[in-house]
Amino acid sequence: MLEGKFESASLMKRLVEAIKDSVKLCNFNCSQTKGITLQAIDDSRVLLISLKLDPGCFEGFRCDKNLVLGLDLESLSKVLKQGNNEDYLTLIAEDAPDNLLVVFEDPKKDRISEFSLKLMDIDSDVLSIEDMDHDCSITLPSSDFAKVARDMRTLSESLQILVTKDSVKFMASGPIGTGSVIIKAHTDLKDGKESIKIDLNKSVNVTFGAKYLNDIVKASTLAETVTIKLTNKIPALFEFKLQGGYLRYYLAPKFDE
């Protein structure tokens, strides 16, 4: 039996909102030691999502037997919207489940809402991602990155990122003209989360589809900072750290023809 209780429903609500536009059907793997993990690839096989929710992400977590919960994220989103952000959220499944029970409890009032969601058999292949060495790593406020990705998409369907020792340059060029945003490394002593950190082994020049970047920045509601790891010509890693876990996106770059 699986029983995972979150201190507030908002984490799960934000997670599903962050990924449901990229992938529709997902297998949630549950185990006592690893908590809940998920790997899913979008239909175009350009963007991969990897989620880890350690048992420590939960207020209470037990999983007697390893389980795979095949869920339609559109349906899960509908159910999660029934609960308030501050509600306790508990996910419950039997050992050979046909359904996932989603329970919301209002912390102040005596109200309990219960939903049963049908599970599905989802055939999906899993890609093995080894730890990669990257040429550079950038950590910046996730809202700053979200703004650049959203703004620059209005100019072009591609976003070029150039990283040098102390700055990151985002460039877009499209039918109406061109644009660039340069951000420089700096340390904010008052609020460390506002700092911009660049670790560089080698300068990088990569281009990504603006559509995918706009899907990725939907996760900026989950973490105040995002870490972007880039290497020329190989997939980039975008990581949003969670309390006791992470949401990672791997994105294949675009190539010059």
Partner: peptide, 14 residues
Amino acid sequence: GGTQGRLDGFFKVS
């Protein structure tokens, strides 16, 4: 804007 690469070229199915 270039050709979009796919992840399959980089990661193997396990």
